[in-house]
Design a protein around this nucleic acid. Structure first.
Lengths: 140, 140
DNA sequence: TGATATAGTTACCTAGGTAACTAATTTGAG
DNA sequence: CTCAAATTAGTTACCTAGGTAACTATATCA
């Protein structure tokens, strides 16, 4: 019983800590973690609609709208109206974003590595596996 | 490399999902997860100062001030000025909070159980262990 | 005693959630 | 086949949660 509180609390705390580190790594580039997550998905998956972005990142539509509007203001992303469905907007990385992406990625990978440096590779794998299983069970 | 993004993303997502469930469980009582976490610590550890609460919950002082002020407004908690140090305020559960606590706890435990029901006990233990180790490594 | 540290607050920031809405599309009953 | 009803994509407004910076008041220390 006590243990479940602790388990959930540890997950929550870890999440905040990782977020904080990510934001530190991205600070020199004036982007925040929410924006980075969108840029990352777009870079790896190609152009997506906003709802596809929501699905990939498991985020509701309203925060996604906000993040995208901010990325547009920063000139990192463009909204491209779909021709088949007038409701849909595809999100596309700009040249500027593609040019700067490697720097962002370098900073993020460096931070990730430093966070995981002291945590054995085998434990990382095990943790990844367990979290994934848990996460799937929750969705049932 | 990709894997680290996934690992961190999964933790983050899990954290939000658990939070959401906790808030659902607490909704009938009009308290939110942040308030519950304070009530829980006070019940198990006894009266604490605000900074002790911050330490236990790994939360910065300003959000703690807000959560406590809300609990005061709801009549669940009292601030008791320390006699030795005029800066310090001890936080104490009210009679009302102590009376209602068992209901809250029942709802939370029920939700926790249902979230973990499909996730084998041994995996839970393993996950707890790994998260704890990781979390300690990060603090180094 | 003057400099420094600590407890708590205030103001303002990002992140994510729900509810209510608009506009466009899909469905299904007649 | 058609048109009203239901669904879907995205936005707006407003909520909780947590963070930093700057501040006040008190304590500690050199």
């Amino acid at each position: 019983m006590r243990n479940n509180h602790d388990l959930f609390h540890t997950i929550h705390q870890l999440s905040r800590q990782l977020h904080k580190s990510l934001n530190e790594a991205l600070q020199p580039f004036s982007i925040y973690s929410a924006q980075w997550s969108v840029l990352f998905v777009l870079k790896t998956k190609g152009n997506l609609t906003q709802s596809e972005l929501c699905d990939y990142l498991s985020v509701e539509a309203p925060p996604m709208t906000r993040t995208i509007q901010r990325l547009i203001k920063q000139g990192y992303v463009k909204q491209i109206p779909s021709k088949e469905d007038k409701r849909v907007k595809y999100i596309q990385l700009t040249e500027k974003a593609i040019a700067e992406y490697p720097e962002w990625e370098k900073a993020v990978l460096k931070m990730n590595d430093s966070l995981l440096a002291l945590f054995p590779k085998s434990s990382q794998e095990e943790l990844r596996k367990l979290l994934h299983e848990f996460s799937i069970q929750l969705r049932k």
